[in-house]
Design a binder for these strands. Structure first.
Lengths: 205, 205
DNA sequence: TTATATACAAACAAGAATGTATGTATATAG
DNA sequence: CTATATACATACATTCTTGTTTGTATATAA
């Protein structure tokens, strides 16, 4: 039996991506073979090569599928006009990401793959640039939010919004890295939200 | 000509390690072949296999050679009894690490390899545990320093030393990651020291 | 209904990479 | 001075991995 229907094919494609995620996680991207992925997906390499050019393409599709929406959501939380004050918005944007990592296995695994199961070399060097660009974007949003906080007169410190934004961004980067590395959850995961609130409280008047 | 003197052999060994570092940096650990390393060192795989069991061993030796001393030095700065107040000690310990990264090419490259050119899978999973342990250690030292700062009455916030220590550690982790990723230096490297001072000033009364 | 493009499986060819085994010239110990 | 261990280079066998090619049953378009 071959030549499935279009829906079947789309499903196969999805299963290959999911299989890749599982194998990347346990073996690392570099040591993952297309044969590994195919076997995990219950197909042969023929199917994999039909749907994707190579391993790199699978990686990028897998990443974009989950990552791009996340960035958008963080943006939204930071810029949306609801009742919260600016500091609360910053706090929420970070807490939401952590919450997402806790609830969404797919996202958690992709984060883990990207942080400690992938080597940013050759074709993957561009991904690094994307990460840096995204960081600049987030920092920019933080800065705007801190500027609003300053206007709202809820800041305890006299530092510039940019300075505060950079510090917050570095804190959050560190938190995400540690969150991922702390697989058993005993060090950071269980108190991630509290650490965020603490970080924000440090700046609240 | 074979069978060099003992000094020659030790030199060969060192050159293999240096070669591995260079190749790891450009190709990533996984995609690095012992042939690559040997060629870069100007020897054959025979020499490599004589000095080391395999690629993993080279990696560990390379890492320990530079990494363990760094950890000790950071410890020292944080616990040493000189004239500085506790907050200045924390600041200095971080600035010194950054300074070391700026000046010491070897260390900078190894940091880069460990952060974005290595997959923590299989045999390398233990390294991840070591990193976590080291983080706990650093956080502990920060906590003690913040406790001293509290005694010295130079803290602006009323948070616990542990909370402050965790926040600082996450900040520093994020900074190191960004420092490494920011290869052209336009985003973080040029202002790393200022970011550290800013972070500390946030807590100084 | 038939022709064709689709969605794979299976087979093939070629190159890497690893580990080991063997060879060998020479420091060095005795 | 000689025997041996050392410090490699070279050769070999084996296993992976990749990319491509070929085969084929069947949706689907016409």
């Amino acid at each position: 039996m071959v030549r499935k229907t279009k829906e079947d094919a789309a499903l196969t494609r999805q299963r290959i991506i999911a299989a890749a995620r599982a194998v990347f996680l346990t073996r690392g991207v570099s040591h993952t073979t297309l044969e590994h992925i195919a076997a995990q997906a219950g197909v042969t390499r023929g199917a994999v090569y039909w749907h994707f050019k190579n391993k790199t393409e699978i990686f990028h599709v897998m990443r974009d599928h989950v990552f791009l929406p996340l960035i958008d959501r963080m943006d939204d939380t930071l810029t949306l006009e609801d009742g919260d004050d600016a500091l609360t918005q910053i706090e929420k944007s970070m807490c939401e990401t952590i919450h997402e990592l806790n609830e969404n296995i797919e996202m958690r695994q992709i984060y883990e793959i990207m942080m400690i199961k992938c080597e940013y070399v050759g074709e993957f060097a561009t991904v690094l640039q994307q990460i840096l660009d995204n960081c600049s974007n987030i920092t920019g949003k933080f800065e705007l939010a801190y500027a609003r906080a300053k206007d709202q007169n809820i800041l305890s410190s006299t530092h510039t919004p940019l300075a505060l934004a950079l510090d917050t961004h570095l804190f959050f980067s560190g938190l995400l890295h540690m969150w991922v590395k702390d697989a058993d959850g005993s060090r950071f995961r269980f108190q991630a939200t509290e650490l965020i609130k603490l970080h924000i409280n440090l700046r609240r008047k």
